[in-house]
Write a protein that binds this DNA or RNA. Structure first.
Length: 880
RNA sequence: GCCCGGAUGGUGAAAUGGCAGACACAGCGGACUUAAAAUCCGCAGACCCUUAUCAGGUCGUGCCGGUUCGAGUCCGGCUCCGGGCACCA
């Protein structure tokens, strides 16, 4: 910086000037040249381990402020844990598969691989510029074959275990692109790329992973994860949606005229089939106790029985068609909840197995086809939705539950159950609802028309994507079939043939289904079993697969013969602290929990959960709104670093708000932190010679002893603040993580040092004390502002690598105040403040308070009723 | 509709049930400077009393109530803002 030379004549002056633009690149170069610097010790290390992990980013090419904040938190923690003597694993990687690479390819004609890898390069550079303490030796890039081959390996293992299977499911389909769209690519019901094209719902054969096998474990595990935020656990609980209830069979009664008409007409085989099984409708209910109040059966429009009946009943067919169309429209408008309840009578009836009553069977748009059995018994008296429906269509509404035996006139619908009792329910009348649920379910079970059941909202995980830039699914379809495999049947690729490589030079176009399907060299292959012609699976895996287990790979990133070595994973897992955005609370974090359980059952690891503790940081906000390109309020980290340096940028991200809260980005605040660092730099540089001299004079214990003994009051006061600061920061790191107040505490210390400058210069503070304080100050700064801390550590003659120095110990004795200011209240109102010595007894404190001038005046003529003395806090005099 | 958060000066925020507003930002005043920038020092919740000072008083943590010697903090009932889920039988 040439202006420095102009502004500062003296060389000594210049060295006191904080210049991050000079310091930071210099230290970065030194750190980059030392790949061992942040390398964890081997798993055989005897040290206690600490696995500190931040969520891996998608390599968009640009770090944003959310990343900066996330990594600043993780980095501070990792550095602190190192200094506390832990063996720390602090890795970073890239969630490198995904659609944006394909879009970029379309737009700029750049191959996805090239685009992705150059983005990674750019972001890695930004991270290095930030001074983040990652061990780049364990870097994981999910789009490279040495990673994704293990996705394929896991897929084969899951196939062997019956955890991966083909399933027909509904997908968003763009007829113009001829491809499946992710939910987030559907904008207002239209294809995000073709605004005039409506997205269709299509049934498609897809690969799915049987996550539902672990539903109970995923749910119950949440209760044993106190290190995860309640918010996340609640969200997962709702997502899993376990509900205990009963399946009940209602026999379908054939009505004479209807069936006669049906018999006259030719019946398609599907209908015949449906009719054969049409003996009963199974409903799922959590309130089997209310079954005496059932007044109809409601089927989802997609229910197979409804489909069968449509052919016979044109009126029903058009009603159902209308419902489906409206549902579709609502889905497009993203307003499924706001749709009005509608239904149509099927003309059929069913028998209530408990009462023998005949109930009309309806089709209703509020019944979900994919939850429970797609059929319910409608109890309008005790269910709000059924009530609304029954009112609209004039169906009877019966009361069968009352809050207690005497209260029978409460408005319907009444949905209470805990203390409630049954009425008008035959032999069950008078029973408590909850007890009746159990007994009636058992009764149904014993009589063969019901079963206690647990249902889940969670569905199996559909992992097929009709995309290019993802992990190829390692399956082939044997064209002619062979022994035990029908023509076109599934044959897994043998492990030895992995990886199934993604072809690199392909033309990406907008249309035509799976891009890999149009690459004959890829799609056409030989059946690994019979050698005959075969076609590869041309779908790729959901990118959530990549992020479900990447953190295990970090423990053994170079392993070429296994996803990782179990001994290494078992040493490092579970992750001690996982840090990331709350937006991943459900999908990523459920999928990774699932994957962990699968790996455990495969015998690869011992832990059942991936992370001991999870921290979700708040958003970065600017002008009251989340930063986004469309709002034009994005602040670029590069800009900030250029202007104020990485230290100031990181430190501001920690100082402006506690990490769990949203953070309002104010550039003036960054400038303020930068000014603070200048003050620290100037002071530490100025006293560096004192520190160095004291270090070379001092000899071990002697030095330590003289640091604390025979202090001047000025020195004692500084030491007191120092040790209070150490204590505060140390506690905060292991609990609240309120780094904003930690940094404030360091500021207080530095302000005091500034104020004590004259005292220090005039010899009022011993050199050994000055040394102790500045050494500790630099150590305290290390987790938050590593560049300037490293620089100052060197200037003050510190030995070794700063980030491996032991964290300073707080000395409670030195931190203790010897005189306390105690507020005095009268009837809870502050009246005065008195000074007492820290050792004073309550009685003494009271006496001092009572003799205070202001207190005496106020007390005149009053009667003292009660005195409250809280040691070190206050005195409250209660008077009348 | 349901479930979570949150609400404190002009702004970001701080405060194991114990002096509300630490620490900063912006602001104002001063020092340094020919001047500015930078830096340093000081002031700073609102209102009232006072010619002014010194000092003093009243009110004040979204609203209403409660518990307590004492409530930003705990309890009950609301309002508004943010996030998640949403006909889950």
């Amino acid at each position: 910086m040439p202006e420095n030379e102009n502004n500062f004549a003296g060389k000594g002056e210049e060295s006191n000037r904080y210049n991050p633009a000079e310091i930071e690149p210099r230290w970065q170069a030194r750190w980059d040249a030392d790949p061992e610097l942040y390398r964890a010790e081997d798993h055989t290390s005897g040290k206690p381990k600490f696995y500190c992990l931040e969520m891996l980013p998608y390599p968009s090419g640009q770090l944003h402020m959310g990343h900066v904040r996330n990594y600043a938190i993780g980095d501070a923690l990792a550095r602190f844990m190192w200094m506390r003597g832990y063996n720390v694993l602090h890795p970073m990687g890239w969630d490198a598969f995904g659609l944006p690479a394909e879009n970029a390819a379309l737009k700029n004609n750049t191959p996805p691989r090239q685009w992705t890898l150059s983005n990674i390069e750019a972001m890695r550079k930004q991270m290095r510029r930030m001074g983040l303490s990652y061990d780049w030796g364990t870097e994981v890039t999910t789009c490279l074959p040495d990673y994704y081959r293990w996705n394929q390996w896991f897929f084969l293992k899951m196939y062997e275990q019956g955890l991966a299977y083909r399933k027909s499911s509904k997908v968003n389909w763009c007829p113009k692109c001829c491809t499946v769209l992710a939910n987030e690519q559907v904008v207002g019901g239209h294809c995000w790329r073709h605004e005039d094209t409506l997205v269709e719902q299509r049934e498609l054969e897809q690969w799915a992973l049987r996550i539902t096998k672990y539903s109970d474990e995923l749910l119950d595990g949440l209760d044993m994860m106190p290190g995860w935020p309640d918010k996340v656990r609640t969200m997962q609980r709702n997502w899993l949606g376990r509900s205990q209830g009963t399946m009940v069979d209602f026999a379908v009664a054939e009505s004479g005229s209807e069936s006669a008409r049906q018999l006259d007409e030719p019946t398609p085989p599907a209908l015949e089939q449906a009719r054969a099984g049409a003996g009963k409708i199974t409903v799922f209910t959590t309130r089997v106790d209310t079954i005496f109040g059932a007044t109809s059966i409601q089927l989802a429009p997609e229910h197979p029985l409804v489909k069968a009946w449509l052919a016979d009943d044109a009126q029903l067919a058009s009603a159902v068609e209308k419902m489906l169309a409206e549902q579709q429209a609502a889905r497009e408008a993203d307003n499924l909840g706001g749709i009005e309840k509608e239904g149509a009578f099927t003309g059929k009836h069913a028998l209530n197995p408990f009462t023998g009553e005949t109930l009309p069977i309806w089709v209703a748009n509020y019944i979900l086809a994919d939850y429970g059995t797609g059929a319910i018994m409608s109890v309008p008296g005790h269910d709000e939705r059924d009530f609304e429906f029954a009112q609209k269509y004039g169906l009877p509404i019966k009361r069968v539950v009352a809050p207690n035996v005497d209260t029978n006139d409460l408005a319907l619908p009444y949905t209470g159950e805990d203390e409630a009792v049954l009425v008008d329910s035959g032999e069950w009348t008078g029973e408590n609802c909850l007890e009746a649920q159990d007994k009636m379910a058992s009764f149904a079970e014993a009589n063969g028309f019901g079963k206690k059941t647990t249902t889940y909202r969670l569905k199996d995980w559909g992992v097929s994507r009709q995309r290019y830039w993802g992990t190829p699914i390692p399956m082939v379809y044997c064209t002619n079939g062979h022994d035990g495999v029908p023509a076109g049947g599934i044959v897994p690729v043998p492990e030895s043939a992995l990886p199934v490589l993604l072809p690199e030079h392909i033309e990406i176009t907008q249309e035509g289904g799976s891009p890999l399907g149009k690459v004959p060299e890829f799609a056409n292959t030989a059946c690994p079993v019979c050698g005959g012609p075969a076609r590869r699976e041309t779908d790729t895996m959901d990118t959530f697969v990549d992020s479900s287990w990447y953190f295990y790979r970090y423990t053994d990133a170079k392993n070429a013969s296994a996803p990782f070595d179990s001994a290494k994973a078992n040493y490092w897992f579970p992750i001690d602290q996982y840090i990331g955005g709350v937006e991943h609370a459900i999908l990523h974090l459920i999928y990774s929990r699932f994957w962990t359980k699968v790996m455990r059952d495969l015998g690869l690891i011992e832990n059942s959960e991936p992370a001991e503790r999870l921290f979700t940081q708040g958003m970065v906000i600017k002008d009251g709104a989340k930063m986004s390109k469309s709002k034009g309020n994005v602040v670029s980290p590069d800009d900030m670093i250029e202007r104020y340096g990485a230290d100031a940028t990181r430190m501001y991200a920690l100082f402006a708000a506690p990490p769990d809260r949203d953070l309002e980005w104010q550039e003036d605040g960054v400038a303020g932190v930068s000014r603070f660092l200048s003050r620290v730099y100037r002071l530490a540089s100025k006293y560096a010679p004192v520190v160095r001299a004291s270090r070379s004079n001092a000899h071990g214990d002697e030095a330590a002893a003289s640091a604390t003994a025979g202090q001047t009051p000025a020195g004692q006061a500084l030491l007191r603040t120092l040790h209070q600061t150490i204590a505060k920061i140390t506690t905060d790191f292991s609990g609240r993580w309120h780094f904003n107040t930690c940094i404030a505490a360091i500021m207080i210390l530095v302000n005091e040092l500034s104020a004590a400058e004259t005292a220090m210069d005039s010899g009022d503070v011993a050199g050994i004390t000055i040394a102790e304080i500045f050494e500790a100050l630099v150590l305290l700064l290390a987790p938050f502002a590593p560049f300037v801390a490293a620089e100052l550590w060197e200037q003050i003659g510190g030995e070794g690598v700063l980030f491996r120095q032991p964290w300073p110990e707080a000395d409670a004795e030195l931190a203790r105040e010897n005189e306390l200011e105690v507020p005095v209240q009268i009837n809870g109102k502050l009246v005065s403040v008195v000074k007492v010595s820290a050792e004073s007894e309550d009685e003494t404190i009271k006496d001092v308070a009572m003799s205070d001038e202001k207190v005496r005046t106020r007390l005149a003529g009053k009667t003292l009723v009660k005195t409250i003395v809280v040691k070190g806090k206050l005195v409250n005099l209660v008077v009348k």
